[in-house]
């Protein structure tokens, strides 16, 4: 089986961005391979152990984060690691463009993957675009997938179950298993392994989103009906003003 994994850092970590007054600081030193991606890598390793094949890992992360994420992936069982320097895949305004470029890259390289995996749904548009352009079936919000490709997709009040049609792009909702830990030999070998860098030609010409600061700490709004007979009216006004009640 030919398997590709798009690996990402744990962007949801509250330590990724810190805020002081109105300044946002980005902390790449706090970013490691996300738990969801470790989990899909473990699934890929299980498939390769069972059916044979290779695992190629790609990341759109930048600089030291990309190196760290890819080294972790290599230590966990990936065969090759590729860093793609093209833009921010977490930016919804860039996802479509980056996915198209990535899809062309895979076609040029004649990769023909059976399975493209990614953990978490933060880059859902990108994975949907890749699946659509490569003619692969797309499965998202997956909470269970086994080595026979039976899957469960989580909805609000239930789940959709079925069997994946390969080739497929699978995006998991959360960790689908408990990944094995990398041993010291694997970590040491991974650090010595080669990471390929690829940059896409041309620049993204469209708008980019801006990372900003959530305005201040929310203040409680508590009225006292004993002191103020208009308290209920004031509560309704406050809820309407802040969009809680329309």
């Amino acid at each position: 089986m030919k398997i590709a994994v798009i690996a990402k850092a744990e962007i949801n970590n509250p330590k990724t961005y810190t805020v002081h007054k109105n300044k946002v600081t980005y902390h790449p030193e706090n970013l490691f391979l996300s738990e969801e991606d470790k989990s899909v890598l473990e699934y890929a390793v299980q498939l390769v152990e069972l059916k044979g094949g290779t695992i190629d890992v790609y990341t759109f992360e930048e600089g030291e984060v990309a190196d760290r994420v890819l080294h972790e992936a290599l230590a966990l069982g990936a065969d090759t690691a590729t860093k793609i320097e093209a833009g921010d895949l977490n930016d919804p305004l860039q996802q479509n463009y980056l996915a198209c470029k990535y899809m062309h890259f895979l076609k040029e390289q004649e990769k023909n993957y059976d399975l493209l995996l990614t953990g978490g749904t933060a880059i859902s548009e990108a994975t949907a675009v890749i699946a659509q352009k490569l003619g692969m079936t797309y499965y998202d919000h997956i909470t269970m997938i086994d080595t026979s490709f039976n899957f469960e997709m989580k909805l609000e009040k239930g789940k959709i179950t079925g069997k994946c049609k390969l080739p497929a792009v699978v995006s998991t909702l959360n960790a689908i298993n408990v990944p094995r830990l990398a041993d010291f030999v694997a970590l040491s070998n991974a650090l010595a392994s080669n990471i390929t860098s690829v940059s896409f030609k041309g620049q993204h010409k469209h708008m980019k989103s801006v990372v900003n600061v959530v305005n201040g700490k929310k203040e409680k709004i508590i009225f006292n009906l004993n002191d103020d007979p208009q308290a209920t009216q004031k509560l309704v006004d406050a809820l309407k003003q802040n969009g809680i009640l329309r």
Partner: peptide, 27 residues
């Protein structure tokens, strides 16, 4: 769009064609 559990968010100016999911309640 909030960035995970951080105190930061992305401000995203949308083009003329866009798709969003949003939680908004009303009576």
């Amino acid at each position: 769009k909030n960035i995970g559990e951080t105190q930061a968010f992305r401000r995203i100016p949308l083009e003329k064609k866009a798709i969003i999911t949003i939680a908004c309640n009303g009576v």
